[in-house]
């Protein structure tokens, strides 16, 4: 391996390991972010205090306005290091409020930096209801003509209800390190056994839920490097010429067709390696080894 070269002290910052605040600072135009309900005017969740757990002033999510490539955007960034980015009452309501504001204000887009295991169990009912409200708010915002982009590359991935929310967005941008699914591998292992899903087999978890797999199967629109610059450029590229579709039966029929066909095509498969082979990848084991650019090229060359 080559020694890393530090040019002008600009290091590559892992998006996976970064905090939500540093992601916001690095993905959006420098100095453009204005936070709504910043920590100095906010209160930590009283539901956590009752359970004797210290809260966070922002309740684990940062919202506000900013610019991306000069265009006005609204931003949501979940903090995976606080309670796994999980959604409680205040956390969820901040997201709903931001999305409703977007439907009224009509910025160029909403950037939703997802980093969450789903419902915060300490506020289970409030979290589940909030995720349902987020689901409807995402669709209302999109119906108002505002694209909502999900950025999935944090250490907690996008699981549970937040996995559903991510797939309700206009498009998903993922890094190889990002993970997107419904039930976490640990939950499946606990309930169905280690033979069903060995959550400690990191390579397997990645082949089932990871960014490269979701990219090859078309469940995420773009695959980017694990740094803020990659996500930034990915969002700028996607938004250039983006036309948010009006909700229609024809559009959902096409999706129904796509999902039904692939359900049949990949029936019985349990590992990304099988799916990639069926997609026509000549040597599926290479997928985990090649870099992002090579994988994008590989996907372009696959049979339609």
């Amino acid at each position: 391996m080559n020694a890393p070269v530090y040019t002008n002290l600009v290091l590559r910052h892992s998006y996976f390991e970064a905090t939500a605040r540093s992601r916001v600072a690095a993905v959006l135009d420098a100095g453009s972010f204005r936070e709504f309900l910043p920590p100095e005017v906010a209160q930590p969740s009283p539901h956590l205090a009752i359970l004797d757990i210290p809260g966070a002033f922002d309740d684990g999510v940062i919202i506000g306005s900013a610019a991306l490539g000069g265009k006005p955007v609204l931003v949501i960034a979940q903090e995976g290091q606080f309670m796994g980015g999980a959604v409680g009452e205040i956390h969820g309501a901040k997201i709903v409020g931001l999305l409703r504001r977007a439907a009224l204000e009509k910025p160029a887009a909403v950037l939703f930096m997802v980093d969450s295991g789903g419902v915060r169990l300490h506020e289970a009912n409030a979290g589940l209801i909030a995720i349902s409200e987020i689901m409807r708010a995402v669709l209302d915002t999109r119906a108002a003509g505002v694209p909502v982009l999900a950025l999935v590359g944090g250490s907690c991935g996008a699981f549970g209800g937040m996995g559903i929310v991510s797939r309700l967005c206009s498009a998903i941008i993922m890094s190889e390190e990002g993970r997107l699914a419904l039930s976490g591998p640990e939950v499946i292992e606990t309930v169905a056994g280690v033979e069903e899903f060995d959550s400690k087999d990191r390579a397997l978890v990645w082949r089932v839920t990871g960014g490269k797999h979701r990219y090859l199967t078309g469940d995420c629109a773009e695959l980017v490097e694990d740094d803020a610059a990659g996500f930034r450029q990915g969002a700028i590229d996607l938004l250039a010429g983006w036309n948010e579709p009006v909700p229609s039966s024809a559009g959902l029929r096409a999706e129904q067709e796509r999902l039904s066909r692939r359900r049949q095509r990949f029936a019985g498969m349990r590992d990304g390696l099988e799916v990639w082979a069926a997609l026509g990848v000549p040597d599926p084991r290479q997928v985990s080894l090649i870099d992002r650019d090579s994988l994008v090229a590989l996907k372009k060359g696959l049979p339609a």
Binding site: T19, R21, P38, P39, E40, P54, G55, A56, F57, E79, Q81, F82
Partner: peptide, 19 residues
Amino acid sequence: AGAALCGVVGSGNLEILIR
């Protein structure tokens, strides 16, 4: 400016708000 926040309420970590 007005206030400053540093850190995250994660395992082995803390957040500090100065006003």
